[in-house]
Nucleic acid binder design. Sequence first.
DNA 1: CTGTTAGCGCCTTCAT
DNA 2: ATGAAGGCGCTAACAG
Lengths: 341, 341
Amino acid sequence: MTYPTTKKVKLVDVANLAECSTATVSRVLNDNPRVSKKGRERVLEAAASLGYVPNGAARALRSANTKLVGVIIPTIDHAIYAIMVAGLQERLAKSGVSLIINTSAYDCELEYKQARILVEHGVETIVLVGTEHHSRTMELLKAKAVDYVLTYTCSTIGSGAAIGFDNTKAGAVAARYLHSLGHKRFGMITGITNGNDRARERRDGFLNKLEELGVTTNSVHTIESPYEVNGAIQAARILLNSDPRPTAIFCGSDIIAAGVIKFCNTKGIQVPHDLSVVGFDNLEIASLVSPQLTTLEVPARQMGTLAAEYTLSDDIQRQFLREQELDVKLVVRESSSTPRL
Amino acid sequence: MTYPTTKKVKLVDVANLAECSTATVSRVLNDNPRVSKKGRERVLEAAASLGYVPNGAARALRSANTKLVGVIIPTIDHAIYAIMVAGLQERLAKSGVSLIINTSAYDCELEYKQARILVEHGVETIVLVGTEHHSRTMELLKAKAVDYVLTYTCSTIGSGAAIGFDNTKAGAVAARYLHSLGHKRFGMITGITNGNDRARERRDGFLNKLEELGVTTNSVHTIESPYEVNGAIQAARILLNSDPRPTAIFCGSDIIAAGVIKFCNTKGIQVPHDLSVVGFDNLEIASLVSPQLTTLEVPARQMGTLAAEYTLSDDIQRQFLREQELDVKLVVRESSSTPRL
DNA sequence: CTGTTAGCGCCTTCAT
DNA sequence: ATGAAGGCGCTAACAG
């Protein structure tokens, strides 16, 4: 196969070379079975010899089959989202569907703009993170009849799909675990909860479960920090200088937990002897820091894969894939233990 | 602004409501200045009240202005690529351009297929990683007149742009540094070099510089490992069981270096006292592991941003942006020192 | 400054 | 199993 220097090769050129109509070429290229074997071969050969590449815009304009899916995540920089996108992209690519990726920086307003752009490009489905979105975003998707999938959450909002896990339950798991270890004084460093339903739910799940277990939660020092190490270190400093000092800290992300560990290491605070630390996500760093992090494993890649499968399926199948609650597993490593007496 | 339940709003609907022609609407929406202020306002108002969203496919078909850029990276899972993509995407989004992301899994054949798909979607430019690509990929881009940018490298191949750094030089920097510390016995764990020119150049730059400094490089034990912790741990085991054992190891990535550190920590090998370790990339983990990693900082985000600016610029500007060699900086932390006597 | 009009390349009925 | 032909929604000449 060689590419001719002639500027543009189009369907009709292939048809001419294969001595058939454009309709036949189109059928062959779209795997329509109503074409004779010989015709099919001639078309394929002609297309290859001309180096024909279909024009996606023309197809999209004509048939609403854009082979395009969109995703909007808060940021690509955070591995937890990158991994989901990786799962999504890989599964989609296997079926010849491409992924347009946009970021919202945790800003609902910006998310709306990105959603609009995705709609402009004619994406067939949009993958979103979390349950909370601008009402305009939802109205837009409804008006333009673009289906969507919510990830990292399992609560749907009427239409659309939700493929993820229960953040509230996950927070409760952390609470139950640390309480069962015998801790009495707890602290928590959440992500920024403004506009982030997942962070809020993790916190509330943690606090409510503690309450249920008999802990007075207004004594539980809770601090917000962006998902980055330096912020976490500052939060750790505040938390560990408070009196009485907590013996266990639950972090809304492994990044934050890694920051806490780093702070403790520099200050000579022994983890887990002096302080138990539980993270969230089970990122690669969880087993790279010392001591290794006890954390809650989020099925990030799986959410991406399943979201892809949802977008790939037809309307009937979608009914059965609309709500999928995945497990969040507690992974116990070295950063947690019974409290020092 | 409310979205009507009527199925599809198009340009002509906006024109009707604004009582003008479709041409005027098109001009307003494309910021063509040859429209009266009053007309512009009426159009904008009409568009908003109808909840009009342009059809990208139609525009693309008609004008070759697709507002789409494509990127093909080996994998999204590796932070070094995720960060570049983040820089690329963020800069592009500011100019209303969307990004289609595809992965090649370090496979040139797959990369070609992904490139074809990007061309189908009508991307204006393609961002690639490294210098080495399948000849078919390059022919395709040439035949379809799609410009491209090579990243993580600064050697162009005739046409296209190259925005990155010199991997050979970077390898040499590591060699010079470790040699200057007084090390005599070196080891290296590279990434998989097959189909990865960057990994190869780093290795060759390291070895050649050592040779230049008087080290017999066939005594330098070199092992390949995928960019993941477990592979690195195995490689570390082999390297550190060899006799004579190296006193310094240069790793092709921080992920690998982190694996080496982890192995040493479990085996009681003191870093840097017993072994100096130098990484590559300066990822977040570099300062999270203990001891913190000495490493070479790769300008990943900057490459993304600059690649975006290249794709955003016109043909004339592009001439000046075609070749940009960025600096790779040695970041000395705790994992390297003079060898034990 | 504004309107009219001719396609962009393809898919998809509708015939045959 | 195949062909003919209309038109998807928009933009860029061109004309006024």
